[in-house]
Write a protein that binds this DNA or RNA. Structure first.
Length: 441
RNA sequence: GGAGGGGUUCCCGAGCGGUCAAAGGGAUCAGACUGUAAAUCUGACGCGAAAGCUUCGGUGGUUCGAAUCCGCCCCCCUCCA
């Protein structure tokens, strides 16, 4: 993903002010020192991503976009994939011990995550091309004696126990922490030290829950190499209603279109709360401060127009899935939420399925509504199972519409000739979930 | 290895021989109101149309009857060694 005009975006420490304005800085090791450091010459910044799943999710966009902002100011970003640390598990941000994943599985995750993350940075540009590294490269060969003598010796358990992430687990009566996870901090610190040594990387960025790990990396660099490094953390993204950010009904919102369709992805953003939209525009888009201020005004003066929401959804979807996905997804959205269903042409229907609206094609000319709800997965219980009972409840609860008409009869059948253009049925559950059923004509 | 405290439905958390499919809260889904928002109110929330069936770490008992009592096993936490 190219994004030229980098490098000349003002003096090197302007990035700090920018991030501050965007509410993207939770803590900084020493602001004055960091600013001086950045202003002096282009620097190298890194952020780590542990392979905990086969895709990144929207929470990972925060550091990814922040790295790109650094790159736009002429600094070099390093993207570290935790092929090794992912095998250990970070105790941070977790109330209890992780289940270790099989080694092969993590290796597969590493590949996917590397590919995904790369799209957000520029690897070709002059001067400060991004770099991807995998900490398995230097951890795999590390033997225990070296680990304990050369690295472990620099860590005081007394200090480690004081770190927030560890402390919380020690104080929790029901959790505790294994030696494995306890050691995570050492590994992450060592990463920083290796990057400092090999790439002159002097800044590490991470979530505010990484603060302890990052600062202990700074300490390690001072002890092993006598160097001075810096830390920047971003706040963990919260939602105004206090629920966890990044979760939708089906769980996390993934960047992988196979796991979260661009349509759902777009819908996630357009559905965010009013109180969050401006903040999200700052964090998840590259819009200028002026544009964001305009959108904020619009949001204030005519909230029902949802201009800010729409722009947010467009921008983020474009960033992650590209321009054509935005077009496709907006076509679906317009059809479903703005137009009337009877205004859709036959081509429109055909296009909906292509654009990524969930759909099924059936060989039958008739199919029961219950069956449709079950097979489409719309009849998901609060627990996450798909059952016929749930389908019936939904129908009886006045929650299901076919081609815009509510159906309250559980025995209702979709028939080809009663559908639009002799085959299309748009089945709707609640206000926001749709499924297109195409029958045999 | 020893002593003590725990493992309950998606999560937290009550229950401690029948009235328990299991209080309460959260999350989730739906309905109403709206703006594809928030807040609020209502309903649903193990499976099943129902009879009924399957749940309270596992297993074997005691009992007419167990999430609740007993034995053994597994796992977690704290302290001691």
């Amino acid at each position: 993903m190219a994004h030229k005009e980098s490098g000349l975006k003002g003096s090197g420490d302007q990035i700090v002010s920018d991030l501050q304005q965007l509410e993207l800085i939770a803590q900084v090791s020493n602001e004055a020192a960091l600013r001086a450091h950045l202003a002096e010459q282009p620097r190298t910044v890194y952020c780590g991503f542990d392979p905990t799943a086969d895709s990144l999710h929207i929470g990972n966009l925060v550091p990814l976009l922040a790295l790109r902002r650094f790159q736009d100011y002429g600094h070099q970003p390093i993207l570290l994939v935790g092929g090794a640390t992912g095998l250990i598990g970070d105790p941070g941000g977790r109330a209890s011990e992780r289940t270790l994943k099989p080694i092969e599985e993590v290796a597969a995750f590493v590949d996917k995550i590397r590919d995904q993350a790369c799209r957000f940075l520029d690897f070709e540009c002059e001067g400060n091309p991004a770099l991807v590294v995998d900490n398995a490269d230097w951890m795999k060969g590390l033997d225990v004696i070296t680990y304990l003598r050369d690295i472990g010796k620099h860590f005081s358990v007394n200090a480690m126990v004081q770190k927030e992430t560890v402390k919380r687990r020690l104080e929790d009566d029901s959790a505790g922490i294994s030696y494995t996870e306890f050691s995570y901090m050492i590994l992450q610190s060592y990463d920083f030290a290796v990057l400092y040594r090999d790439h002159d990387c002097t800044i590490q960025m991470g979530g505010s829950d990484q603060w302890g790990n990052i600062t202990s990396g700074i300490d390690l660099i001072r002890r092993m190499q006598g160097g001075q490094a810096h830390a920047i953390t971003y706040p963990l993204i919260t939602k105004s209603d206090g629920t966890k950010f990044g979760k939708s009904a089906e769980g996390a919102v993934w960047l992988d279109p196979a796991k979260t369709s661009p349509y759902k992805f777009y819908q996630f953003w357009i559905n965010c709360a009013d109180d969050d939209v401006v903040r999200f525009l700052k964090i998840f888009t590259f819009l200028s401060a002026a544009d964001i201020a305009d959108l904020a005004d619009a949001q204030q003066s005519q909230p029902e127009a949802r201009l800010a929401h729409r722009r947010l959804a467009q921008e983020v979807t474009r960033l992650v899935h590209g321009e054509s996905a935005v077009t496709a997804v907006e076509r679906i959205t317009a059809a479903i939420f703005s137009n009337r269903i009877d205004a859709l042409t036959e081509q429109d229907f055909a296009q909906l399925a292509q654009d990524g609206l969930p759909s099924t094609h059936s060989d039958l000319a008739e199919v029961g509504l219950l069956t449709v709800l079950v097979e489409s997965g719309l009849a998901t219980t609060p627990k996450g199972e798909v059952t016929q009972g749930q389908a019936k409840k939904l129908i009886l609860g006045n929650s299901v519409a076919v081609n815009g008409v509510k159906q309250v009869d559980p025995e209702f059948k979709l028939q080809a000739d009663s559908g639009r253009y002799g085959r299309y049925h748009l089945v709707q559950k609640g206000k926001k979930q749709h499924h297109l059923v195409v029958l045999k004509r």
